[in-house]
């Protein structure tokens, strides 16, 4: 089965307090030099059958209507190679 990955991130203009909390914790753990952190979501979809244009179009639609809320989030869809 082929894997399609959908990454969902808050839009750049949306405040991400979770990412900020992670960023602030990093120096306390000795990880210096990280200027900013944004936290997102990754969905791994195991697709039955061929991942052709039609299948990708369906996944794009699922991402747009369900996996992401496009009022506040952006998403990308990509096929994971080499499996």
């Amino acid at each position: 089965m082929a894997r399609v990955v959908v990454d969902v991130m808050l839009k750049p203009e949306i405040l991400d307090p979770q990412g900020q909390a992670v960023q602030r914790a990093l120096p306390r753990l000795g990880f210096e030099g990280i200027a900013d952190v944004r936290q997102g979501k990754r969905f791994e979809l195991e697709v039955e059958g061929p991942v052709d244009d039609a299948a990708l179009a369906r996944i794009h639609q699922a991402a747009e209507t369900f996996l992401a809320n496009t009022v506040i989030e952006d998403f990308t869809v990509r096929v994971e190679e080499g499996q």
Partner: peptide, 11 residues
């Protein structure tokens, strides 16, 4: 309704 809801800014 328009808009969306996010995590409270102070978490």
């Amino acid at each position: 309704l328009p808009g969306a809801m996010l995590r409270n800014n102070h978490l």
